[in-house]
Design a protein around this nucleic acid. Sequence first.
DNA 1: CGCATATATTGACGCGCATCGATAATTGCC
DNA 2: GGCAATTATCGATGCGCGTCAATATATGCG
Lengths: 108, 108
Amino acid sequence: MQRCCPPPTVDTTDRGAEAGLFKALGDPSRLAMLATLARADDEVCVCDFTAALPLNQPTISHHLKILREAGLVSCERRGTWVYYRLAGDARERVAAALRSVIPEAIPA
Amino acid sequence: MQRCCPPPTVDTTDRGAEAGLFKALGDPSRLAMLATLARADDEVCVCDFTAALPLNQPTISHHLKILREAGLVSCERRGTWVYYRLAGDARERVAAALRSVIPEAIPA
DNA sequence: CGCATATATTGACGCGCATCGATAATTGCC
DNA sequence: GGCAATTATCGATGCGCGTCAATATATGCG
């Protein structure tokens, strides 16, 4: 191992949190749910996801749990049905994560 | 399976490409390399990564290959050393992917 | 209470990923 | 050509992920 030219400036900041966020975004089905929630003015029923997506019900529930634990969505039970909505700070959280890695990728 | 209330509007657009991009961002070591490249004005030598990151050399090479295949970085060999740089359209690509999922997450 | 429906959890399976050691490929230098 | 150094590839290993069937939990209704 040998140096080549100038002093190295490798960013060794721990980005486990940001990686966790992006990992939650790393599945097409989860992106479909997030895109739906981001465009819905109010909440979306789980039954809509199970009806529209080509996945079995436990798989839907599993993906929603991952989004929940990532803090990207929140849910509320009303009667038999459970309604999900985009978390209030989801937009700024992902934007901040992206900005922390590639600062100029987002205006401000 | 039964409807609950209004017509569902689940976004079933295929987001495999966006998910692939986010999946490439879903690792702390790869984020460290990307953050380094995004802040470096010019290119960064592989030897700097192997020297600074707590990973073995084959693992570094493996992660760089993933970033390369995701189109996020490009590389050029000069002599014994290989230099990586952030791809020219990396910033707009990730911004567009994020915007396509959560439109209001990014200003423009 | 008992039944039906909606959602969550559990357990299992197969595949992909992160990591490493060993080795190959490439280049520079003698 | 031969040797040393840098990077890439290969093979293997262990773990995590996406998926499903089966089951559990929760709610509403009669």
